[in-house]
């Protein structure tokens, strides 16, 4: 039989008496039943479970690293000007906090990094949209954009210094050159992964051109775009640190990269460790506070987040 419907007994209560009102009432009840049976139940995880599943493992890992570090110090594997004890590094933290300079270092770098990242966002987003949607542009600069991603942005520091001088402009230029390709490529990848069905549906609804880009393409590409932003931030931060380490000048405020370089010159290993930890911590913090929640929110609202 061509029909696939035969042999299925649908449960219509009282179908014998329902000859005259076979539609309305029975259908409502039937639909309500089907809806209740088929609907997806989604709940949030408990706080305690979150602590055990998400917080405990990384805390354990950090504790283990500290223990191994301390053991190495006790075992005297290296002289203390090469390997300071964890307590020495912690001592530098409290010193710098007492002097009130720690937050200054952090703020100088973070404000530079975030502003540079926002600039990269403003440049990379339209660029990615153009590359993804205009065949000629994609053929022309798509490969270059992908290639630029693998070029270490430190390479841009020397020419940027020559072109722009030792100032904040140079820092922003290096951040842009590092982050724009990641953001644009992330958006291109996100757009390429939109199911063609959504684009067809959008077109039949009259969403073409800029309206299509705003209502269909951008929201459809959001997961890939966010991945690009996350990578873009990582590249911004790395580029900035490279720029700060290489290009130090009294005119520039002391950021974390300069801190690292200055303390290397002072041969103060605890301070060097401190600077490295701070750079790492800021990178992790921005990711945890901004990008991870954004990503989880996007995936959760689309039902793409596996609960287990």
């Amino acid at each position: 039989m061509a029909s696939t419907d035969t042999g299925v007994d649908t449960e219509k209560d009282g179908s014998t008496a329902a000859e005259q009102n076979r539609d309305a009432y029975g259908l409502v009840g039937l639909e309500a039943g089907l809806d209740a049976l088929d609907s997806v139940q989604s709940g949030r995880t408990q706080l305690r479970e979150t602590l055990i599943r998400k917080v405990l493992p990384p805390v354990t890992a950090v504790a283990l690293v500290l223990i191994v570090w301390q053991l190495l110090v006790w075992a005297n594997v290296a002289p203390d000007y090469k390997l300071p004890a964890p307590s020495d590094v912690w001592g530098e933290v409290s010193d710098a906090r007492v002097q009130g300079t720690l937050l200054d270092y952090i703020w100088t770098s973070v404000s530079r990094g975030l502003l540079g990242f926002l600039l990269a966002l403003a440049v990379g987003t339209p660029l990615g949209l153009l590359v993804a949607r205009v065949a000629f542009v994609r053929a022309a600069i798509g490969p270059i954009l992908s290639g630029l991603q693998s070029l270490p942005s430190v390479a841009w520091v020397p020419p940027a210094v020559i072109w722009l001088g030792l100032n904040d402009k140079m820092m922003y230029a290096v951040i842009l050159l590092g982050a724009v390709p990641s953001i644009a490529n992330g958006l291109v990848a996100g757009i390429d992964q939109i199911p063609p069905l959504f684009l067809r549906a959008g077109r039949t609804m009259g969403a073409t051109g800029l309206r299509g880009a705003w209502h269909i393409v951008m929201p459809g590409a959001l997961p890939g775009y966010l991945a690009g932003l996350k990578q873009g931030w990582a590249f911004s931060w790395r580029s900035l640190m490279a720029a700060e380490i290489i290009a130090s000048s009294p005119d520039l405020g002391v950021g974390m990269g300069q801190l690292l370089e200055n303390e290397r010159n002072n041969s103060s290993m605890p301070q060097v460790f401190l600077a490295i930890f701070l750079i790492l911590l800021v990178g992790i913090a921005i990711d945890l506070l901004i990008f991870s929640p954004l990503k989880r929110w996007v995936l959760r609202s689309r039902g793409l987040l596996a609960t287990r």
Partner: peptide, 29 residues
Amino acid sequence: GRPALMFQEHALFPWLTAGKNIELALKLS
């Protein structure tokens, strides 16, 4: 006029609620 098209897959936009999906169609028309 412009016909509406329904597919085998529902083609609702997952980034919108059910109501907003319909509101988007209204907005675009």
